[in-house]
């Protein structure tokens, strides 16, 4: 699955980005067929650009202080035609054909078979993720997209309010999410791992914080996860959990959030059915811990300014504690 990468490009990468390279969200660290293709284009372009820039600078230096013969040759109008028209005409034709050829091979990448199709909706400022399983309930999640490796995945991208752009650099280029339209992104990720992405089209307010993780897993792990995710979390067994659930329902959380198997069926905010199994709270702004969860509930406007959730400062500390316990307990039984 992983194409052999020419070693000059690894060498070049370390030269160029050496010392300050970061792989957290890098274009140059590809993990899907699509992203690998683009990185090859990128290195080709960097080589081309460097060559032409050097050519211009050398010609300029020769024009300023070069030997007389060279300067006389450079001063001719025909030189302008050769270097300014003929040379770009040839090189740009090559570039254009190469670019189009890459687009064609991108279109020809496998996306038939039994494609996994996931809907991602950009909202101010989080990602709603919907898995349409052939059978069973629709599984909703937020800010975490689980996909299988090695097989083509189709992401159907929508926007609920303003324009967003879906971008996870390590696994592919970005595609805009536009109200009223559905756009698509085809991916074939070749290595399991967690890939960070974030919104690339300015969407107001907390655009900077609108991040997400794509979690690529082996197809058997993925199938197992999908099965677990379809289940309804068990009723809390502890008192504190039960207390938390009653607070959750009484405080009106259900007006915006869904927890399958309870009366909470709101759809304005993220589905919390399995929030206990997620990695973060408040779209990637905080890792999912008890403290962070409580902080988001009472102080969300500082964590993610402008988000739609009111701050529940009325909750007493022990109520908050119980609520957090309940939420953390929301996951599929192993």
């Amino acid at each position: 699955m992983i194409p052999a990468r020419p070693c000059w490009y690894l060498f070049g990468a370390s030269m160029l980005l050496g010392g300050c390279t970061s792989d957290v969200q890098s274009v140059m660290n590809p993990s899907s067929l699509q992203a690998v293709q683009i990185v090859e284009v990128a290195w080709f372009l960097f080589g081309f650009g460097t060559f032409v820039l050097v050519l211009v600078i050398v010609t300029l230096l020769l024009a300023i202080r070069g030997p007389l013969r060279i300067r006389q040759a450079l001063a001719r109008e025909s030189t302008v035609i050769w270097l300014g028209i003929a040379f770009p005409a040839v090189t740009l034709t090559v570039l254009l054909v190469y670019g189009v050829w890459v687009m064609r091979s991108n279109l020809n990448l496998p996306h038939g078979g039994s494609p996994v199709s996931i809907e991602v909706v950009g909202e101010q400022w989080w990602w709603r993720v919907l898995y349409h399983a052939p059978a069973g309930p629709q599984i909703a999640s937020a800010n975490e997209i689980r996909i299988p490796v090695g097989s083509p995945v189709t992401l159907n991208l929508k926007a609920a309010d303003v324009i967003h752009s879906f971008w996870v650099p390590s696994i592919g280029g970005k595609v805009d999410m536009i109200p009223g339209r559905t756009t698509q992104l085809q991916l074939t990720v070749d290595r399991p791992g967690v890939y960070r992405g974030q919104c690339a089209e300015y969407c107001g307010g907390a655009h900077a914080l609108m991040a997400m993780d794509v979690i690529a897993m082996s197809s058997s792990d993925y199938a197992a996860w999908l099965e677990r995710a379809a289940t309804v979390p068990a009723t809390p067994e502890t008192d504190i959990g039960l207390h938390g659930r009653s607070i959750f329902l009484a405080a009106g959380c259900g007006a915006c959030h869904t927890v399958r198997g309870t009366a909470a069926a709101g759809s304005l905010g993220p589905d919390l059915t399995h929030i206990g199994a997620r990695r973060s709270v408040g779209i990637k702004t905080l890792p999912l811990t008890r403290e962070n969860l409580m902080r988001f509930i009472v102080d969300g406007q500082h964590v993610k300014p402008g988000n739609l959730m009111p701050e529940f400062r009325v909750l007493q500390p022990q109520q908050l504690e119980a609520l957090a316990s309940y939420l953390l307990s929301l996951k599929a039984a192993d």
């Binding site: 005409a89 254009l96 054909v97 189009v100 687009m103 064609r104 279109l107």
Partner: peptide
């Protein structure tokens, strides 16, 4: 001359790419 080149570049991709993909 420049416009000819421009037109050639415009139609070049149609050789490689399918319609409406």
């Amino acid at each position: 001359l420049l416009s000819l080149l421009g037109i050639a570049w415009t139609i070049l991709p149609t050789v490689f790419l399918p319609t409406c993909a």
